[in-house]
Write a protein that binds this DNA or RNA. Structure first.
Lengths: 212, 212
DNA sequence: CCGATAACTTATCGGTGTTAGCTCACACGG
DNA sequence: CCGTGTGAGCTAACACCGATAAGTTATCGG
């Protein structure tokens, strides 16, 4: 909030306050991303103008555009995790908790399609193939870990058939991602009512994973 | 650096043969898409050079870049349909046919990631919101129709629980798309072995859709 | 041979991400 | 109290991109 659209005369920051611009750039980017709803419209120049600054100044804080977008999305990623955890915590039954988690995931994606697109529908940096990603810092691994925990819990409670929790969690993830991403990418397909489709998918998964 | 494939001035086409260039452009585009494996590298200028022609000539045959890429992918789409139909036809059991269809889908996506990305992971034209898409010509609707047919067949044979075939087919589609697109977009995730994951997902779906 | 026109080109526009190099104001050591 | 180092940001430019307007060339019917 405090949508500080303070554009034009942005005073130069004091000596030690250079980091403030970083925050302002992040805020401006997020604002643009949500307002326009189009990743293509979020250009370095547009961001710079929205932040009341010239384009090169952005590179004082971010190596390139990808890093900037990644930073924006990392914030959003944390919120996705928060949404899901909150939804899951509101339910006692471990199976229902998983269901709530899945629904929260889909809802988040549909409400933040451009963020979701960047997070899960575009290839990563693709740059350094010799730098095989730092797994510890891979954004979203925390959220995924929480899913694995909930799956394990459901198995321990006998709500799911015993199996490799990691494998099952991965399968659930691909499931919710499938519907979320297709709805975002192909809104013109003659979709059945979303709630119907979602309920069907969740039911099939639950039935397929139920203890025998 | 890019292997400049010999393009001398490319003789101008004869009077009635203007359409030949269209084919050459399509071929050049597909070639680039596969060679570079990066949609970003496939620019109008690069395509023009690969076809031995100047950029504006492309606009004699395609309204814009989107239309060109769509045309390239339409071809690939037909082949996806062919692959799946072929795989499904090789099996008698209707449930196994569905399974084969799904596996063929995933395989096609992983073997043609850049085509798959354009087909299913990017927003469509997004242009004319007042022109709500011509459903008849929506590419891939044919392939989807074949899936619905196979689902119906499996239900009639009692291999799947009776339900709305369109709904079930849509759910299956989102399922195979989920794993395909995530594998393409997030190759750095610590995936379990693909065959294991795929088998798990297919099994869960089969179990969830089985007659009671 | 002529002129209409299909098939293409040259030149250009406005936009993009990104970099090199500069300026200017502040803070601090002497 | 002043000189200077440097942090913070800017100007100008590069090399691309998609797209268009207007020109040129070669072919073919008559």
């Amino acid at each position: 909030m405090t949508s500080a659209p303070a554009q034009r005369p942005r005073a130069r920051a004091r000596r030690g306050q250079g980091e403030r611009l970083r925050e302002e750039i992040l805020e401006a980017t997020e604002r643009l991303l949500i307002q326009t709803g189009d990743q293509g419209a979020v250009s370095i120049r547009a961001i710079a103008e929205a932040a009341g600054v010239t384009p090169p100044s952005i590179y004082l804080h971010f190596a390139d555009k990808d890093e900037l977008l990644a930073a924006v999305c990392a914030v959003r990623f944390a919120e996705l995790d928060r949404c899901m955890t909150e939804a899951a915590a509101a339910v006692d039954d471990p199976l229902e908790a998983l269901r709530a988690r899945g629904l929260a995931y889909v809802q988040f994606g549909l409400e933040n399609p451009e963020h979701y697109r960047i997070l899960f529908m575009t290839r990563p940096v693709a740059g350094a193939a010799d730098n095989p990603v730092d797994l510890e810092h891979l954004p979203g691994l925390g959220a995924f870990g929480h899913l694995v925990e909930d799956v394990t819990r459901a198995m321990d409670a006998g709500a799911l058939a015993a199996a490799d929790p990691f494998l099952v969690a991965t399968g659930l993830w691909t499931g919710v991602h499938g519907i979320t991403s297709l709805l975002i990418a192909r809104p013109d397909f003659p979709w059945p009512p979303i709630e119907t489709l979602l309920a069907h998918i969740v039911d099939v998964s639950a039935r397929g994973l139920a203890p025998s």
